[in-house]
Design a protein around this nucleic acid. Structure first.
Lengths: 343, 343
DNA sequence: TACAAAACTATACGCGCGTAAAGTTTTTGT
DNA sequence: ACAAAAACTTTACGCGCGTATAGTTTTGTA
């Protein structure tokens, strides 16, 4: 540290012996000043620990170095994980990520978008709630702020979409289940919050058809984002009223599977591919906890890193392109089959 | 909507027919202007959808309406939950919460604090990493920004601490286990990230002593915040080298217990209080997923709502008091025993 | 050594708002 | 109905920085 605290760039410029406009130039892009100048400034920064006032910087700029990251439900470790990767990408590239969770509530989502506009972000990485989202609100937002959608696609919204190829999730798992046993029934929510679930259902029907197998969709009731609870309750009801129609179940997502497995456990029904197992369960997402379910969950994994990288790079391109793409691109990454004990 | 977009408060004032200083006064506190004036302004807001420039507002203010929320590891649903409640409290009180996760990395934590200073928050709700935190960094931060610690206490840091009473977690669970069976051994990490773990160990030793029972602490190796993984690996090693010393295990936290239970499952050892169960497991935290473990986890629950409310209200008091308390207060909430199937 | 290009300095203005001071209008209480 | 209080309007300045312009110094090159 040193004597007195510096109040503003004027003072800092004086102390460092460089003119204010040049100092300003440095903070906007250190490479834009002569190496010797850069050194002197950086020495002064070290010595006096000065940072330009972020609010004054952003006041005039049409856009800032902020990047908004919006996820639908942060208490879901899947989103926490993907958000973590996105944050890191932003920081590495010199942006300031600001993280928001809609907490499963459409009104929160809309409010988040509203306040994001005030923050004049350079761009936004946005995973919408899906079905319950306020479409017109999102549309208005995307018209104002360069936005990349990820995870949940909403047709036509944002300048691009980056996510996972739901068809590959289903075909990989169904293929494996058929190859090693029998075609599965599908365990899902009747009114899923997330559009991926609908795509997975459609994929299931198509894949089963391709195998010439009869499809069998079990749609359970339940609203909201507490999927484990919904899966558990739904499974309990089924187990108490005749049971599942097949000994092989494909679960629409891992959180639902966690609830399903806990129901099987409670009923004393052994799940797995080994001896003495009554039922096999596979699922989709490779949720961070799916490794520790009982039994551990055979699942199709998102490529977290690829999705995060591609989403961020797309946003970067979008920012460089001035906020608009000629064509809305959709990038889908294939799933990877993770074989564990449940199927 | 209406004709053209309003650029600034000057224009907005003209259109609404109120002078700019009065409009400014309104935005600082709607109650501070005459009801009739308020109505005219609010009508104009509705009509033209104007919001003052947040950066210009914050530029001059010594502190803003921002409240920083910092948690050590957001991929842990426990912190996601508590963060959600804190966010809501902030919003309800008219503040803008800004959420950060240290992602288990001390350097990130320090950087977060640095950038928080730039945001001139009215206050910060801070759950530090604990052992690995950079103490002097945190100390310097707390000297500049009104800060309330929660969840993890670091002696002397921040103006107050709000958390859970670790002793009650241990005494409740041990008491129950003793009453219905035998005194437990303690399953924990040797070098826990979080200071609560140390308090729980101390409480365990004290409580066991009080019962005249011999304590037995099993400290497993492992670093970082992937507690499930650590718990699983640690438990597997123990099960493969002689097994646990007692048939009753108290786990230092639920995430560790999730790993432990998955190890028992893998080894075909039945956990629970019922017939044919070889071992009972209880734990602490009431992690959002502990309901869906196999078997469901008997645990001591945090009072999420109380902790969140008290932490926020303390911060509010702190802000009202000008950023300093005369005395550093520590508030601890007692645990509540949640009986499920594992013990 | 000279000379153009690059990088700098000095000066000045504007951004959108907070806020103070002085004067004017409206409201309130009696 | 009237005075005091409250709320308002007008005017003006400052915050910390981006950025434009014109002039000066440094750098790279021949």
């Amino acid at each position: 540290m040193s004597k007195q605290k510096i109040r503003n760039m004027e003072e800092f410029a004086k102390i460092s012996g460089i003119s204010r406009p040049t100092v300003s130039k440095y903070f906007n892009d250190p490479e834009s000043v002569r190496a010797s100048t850069r050194e002197r400034i950086e020495q002064a920064i070290q010595a006096h620990d000065y940072r330009p006032n972020i609010f004054a910087i952003n006041q005039n700029r049409r856009s800032t170095k902020n990047i908004g990251i919006v996820v639908p439900y942060l208490a879901d470790p899947f989103f926490a994980e993907i958000a973590r990767r996105l944050e890191q990408q932003c920081i590495d590239a010199g942006y300031s990520p600001i993280l928001f969770s809609s907490h499963g509530v459409p009104e929160h989502e809309a409010e988040i978008l509203q306040s994001l506009i005030s923050l004049k972000p350079a761009g936004v990485l946005f995973a919408p709630l899906g079905r319950s989202s306020n479409r017109s609100e999102i549309e208005a937002f995307c018209a104002q702020v360069p936005t990349i959608l990820f995870d949940s696609n909403i047709e036509g919204m944002g300048e691009a979409f980056v996510g996972s190829d739901n068809f590959s999730f289903v075909s990989l798992t169904v293929d494996y289940l058929v190859r090693t046993g029998e075609p599965p029934c599908l365990f899902e929510m009747r009114t899923p919050a997330n559009p991926n679930a609908n795509k997975r259902r459609a994929a299931y029907l198509e894949v089963m058809d391709r195998y010439g197998a009869e499809s069998n969709v079990i749609s359970i009731e339940g609203e909201g984002w507490e999927f484990e609870e919904v899966g558990h309750r739904g499974a309990m009801r089924i187990l108490e009223t005749g049971g599942f129609p097949r000994g092989t179940i494909l679960c629409s997502n891992d959180r639902l599977a966690i609830g399903l497995l806990s129901a099987f456990y409670k009923k004393g029904i052994r799940v797995g591919r080994g001896e003495g197992c009554a039922v096999r369960v596979a699922s989709m997402d490779d949720h961070p906890f799916s490794q520790f379910t009982c039994p551990s969950l055979t699942t199709a994994a998102h490529d977290y890193d690829q999705v995060a990288s591609k989403a961020f790079n797309s946003l970067r391109d979008l920012i460089d392109a001035g906020g608009r793409f000629n064509k809305r691109m959709e990038t889908l990454f294939s799933a990877q089959l993770i074989l564990r004990s449940s199927a």
